[in-house]
Amino acid sequence: MTPGDSDDHAAAFSDFYHRERTRLFRFAAVMSPHLDHESAVQEAFVSAWRHWPSISPPARRAWLVKTIRNLLVDQSRRLERPSEVTDEVIARSRILVPRHREAEAWHELTSTLAAIARLPDQLRTALVLRFWDFDDDETADVLGCRRESVRRYVSDARARISEVVGNPERRVRGSRRGKGTP
């Protein structure tokens, strides 16, 4: 790489970072509010820069998403005491700023976030990418699946979340599963 190339790469990387960082930070925060999601995003950008010339431009964002996801998986494996991702664990993560709001509304938000964090990895990734407006083709690239599967994952994820939030009777028995249960 000549210095000139290097400058061009740096400029492209800089543009990319400024354009994409916020959405990637948001993606990571919803994926794993209880982990060090910010450092996963930073590490992923460092890694992206290291591999920059070999990542094809249209695939850059999906590359970042995949890397962030892997780093979060690594983090959760390294947890000294992995525990269930309960509502309390999510509340402690302080990703949602507790302000003067009704306790009930606060609880609902936290338990929705926790329900997302508890989803199986594929469903969670599909849902969270949709949540932040990534398109299905890009999500399919991230997940290594077909576009149609992405839609199924998203609706399956929604069904599972619906089971545990917003329905007081069901929330108690939150572990009930079942695809397509209305």
Binding site: A29, L96, V97, E108, G166, R170
Partner: peptide
């Protein structure tokens, strides 16, 4: 169960955070 409004609210919160 009104999931969509809930997700919208969550998104608004996180966008602010």
């Amino acid at each position: 169960v009104g999931l969509e409004p809930r997700l919208d609210e969550l998104r608004a919160e996180l966008t602010e955070a």
